[in-house]
Simulated assay, not measured.
Amino acid sequence: MPAIAIPGPEGRLEARFSPPPRPRAPIAMILHPHPQAGGTMNDRITQQLYKTFVARGFGVLRFNFRGVGRSEGEFDNGIGELSDAASALDWVQSFHPEASTTWIAGFSFGAWIGMQLLMRRPEIRGFISVSPPANMYDFSFLAPCPSSGIIIQGVNDEVVNPNAVQKLVDKLRTQRHITIHHDEIPRANHFFENEMDMLMASVNNYLDFRLDPNSPIK
C-alpha cells in the first residue's frame, strides 16, 4: 500500500491507510514505539496490529510521528506526538465520518500516547495497549480511564517493568463502568522477539470477545 501524507500540526505526517470496506465500518489507529529508539510505523508489532484490524473490516491508519521517516517536524517528548495523534484521528474521521466506533492501539511509547488520546476523545470505545511504559511515564492522567481495553505485557520485558504495569492495571480495575483485561506473555521480552504469535493470539482473542454482538462490553 503506498504511503500517503496527512496534515499534522508541524507539517505532513507520513502514513499508511486501509480505507473502510463498507459504510459504517469501525476505524482504528495504530501508534508506533519511541521515535528516538528506532520506532516507526513499520515496526513489526505496529504492522501486525494494523493488519489485524484490517482483516477484521476496520478502516485503519498507522503513521510516523513528527521527525520520523518522511514526517515533518522534530521529536517533542510526547507533547507534540499527542497532537500528531489527535490530528491523524481527525483526518481518519473526516475521511470516514460515519464510522460505527473507534479503537486505538499502541506499542510502548505509542501505548502511552494512545492512552492519553483516550482521555481527550470520548468516541474511542476500545484500546489495545502493548507494553505501556508505566515505569517511565506518568499514567495518572487516567483518572478515570474512559473506556475498556486490554493491556498486554511480556513477563521478561527488560525495558518496561512488569510490576509497574501490574500496578497500573490494579489501579484501573478499581474504576467503575470499565473492564480492563490484562494478559502476561510468558518468556516475552519487550519486543516479543520469539512470542509474536502469542502476542497476536492475545490481541485476537480480545477482539473476538469485544466485537461479538453479545459481548457484555460495548
Rank of each mutant, 00 (worst) to 15 (best):
residue 28 A to V: 03
residue 188 A to L: 08
residue 159 V to G: 06
residue 166 Q to H: 14
residue 162 P to R: 08
residue 46 T to P: 00
residue 201 A to T: 14
residue 101 T to C: 12
residue 105 A to V: 02
residue 5 A to F: 14
residue 84 D to M: 03
residue 148 S to G: 13
residue 181 H to W: 11
residue 126 G to E: 02
residue 211 L to P: 00
residue 129 S to M: 09
residue 90 D to F: 04
residue 68 V to M: 03
residue 189 N to V: 08
residue 65 F to Q: 02
residue 80 G to K: 09
residue 193 E to G: 06
residue 187 R to K: 12
residue 50 Y to L: 05
residue 65 F to W: 01
residue 186 P to M: 07
residue 202 S to C: 14
residue 60 V to G: 01
residue 140 S to T: 13
residue 130 V to C: 03
residue 33 P to I: 05
residue 171 K to P: 03
residue 138 D to W: 08
residue 124 I to Q: 06
residue 1 M to N: 00
residue 77 N to G: 15
residue 20 P to W: 00
residue 8 G to A: 02
residue 203 V to I: 12
residue 89 L to I: 06
residue 82 L to R: 13
residue 160 V to R: 05
residue 116 Q to M: 13
residue 130 V to K: 05
residue 123 E to D: 15
residue 157 D to H: 04
residue 46 T to Y: 04
residue 74 E to R: 10
residue 39 G to C: 11
residue 21 P to H: 07
residue 164 A to I: 01
residue 68 V to P: 03
residue 144 P to V: 10
residue 58 F to Y: 13
residue 209 F to W: 13
residue 9 P to V: 13
residue 125 R to T: 15
residue 168 L to I: 13
residue 86 A to R: 12
residue 46 T to A: 13
residue 37 A to D: 04
residue 218 K to C: 10
residue 124 I to G: 03
residue 180 I to K: 05
residue 154 G to Y: 06
residue 50 Y to S: 00
residue 26 P to G: 02
residue 110 G to S: 08
residue 198 M to T: 12
residue 136 M to D: 11
residue 105 A to S: 14
residue 204 N to V: 04
residue 24 R to P: 01
residue 77 N to H: 15
residue 131 S to E: 03
residue 19 P to W: 01
residue 58 F to Q: 01
residue 212 D to G: 09
residue 214 N to A: 15
residue 40 T to Q: 01
residue 49 L to K: 04
residue 217 I to D: 10
residue 152 I to D: 10
residue 120 R to S: 15
residue 3 A to E: 10
residue 61 L to W: 04
residue 175 Q to M: 13
residue 131 S to K: 05
residue 67 G to D: 10
residue 142 L to D: 08
residue 34 H to V: 07
residue 149 G to W: 05
residue 209 F to A: 06
residue 125 R to L: 12
residue 63 F to L: 07
residue 198 M to W: 09
residue 4 I to Y: 04
residue 137 Y to W: 09
residue 58 F to C: 00
residue 58 F to M: 00
residue 205 N to E: 14
residue 15 A to H: 01
residue 62 R to A: 01
residue 218 K to F: 09
residue 134 A to R: 02
residue 139 F to R: 06
residue 171 K to T: 15
residue 80 G to Q: 12
residue 2 P to C: 02
residue 166 Q to C: 09
residue 122 P to I: 07
residue 72 E to D: 11
residue 97 P to A: 02
residue 33 P to G: 02
residue 213 P to L: 04
residue 120 R to T: 11
residue 162 P to F: 06
residue 43 D to K: 00
residue 116 Q to V: 04
residue 4 I to W: 03
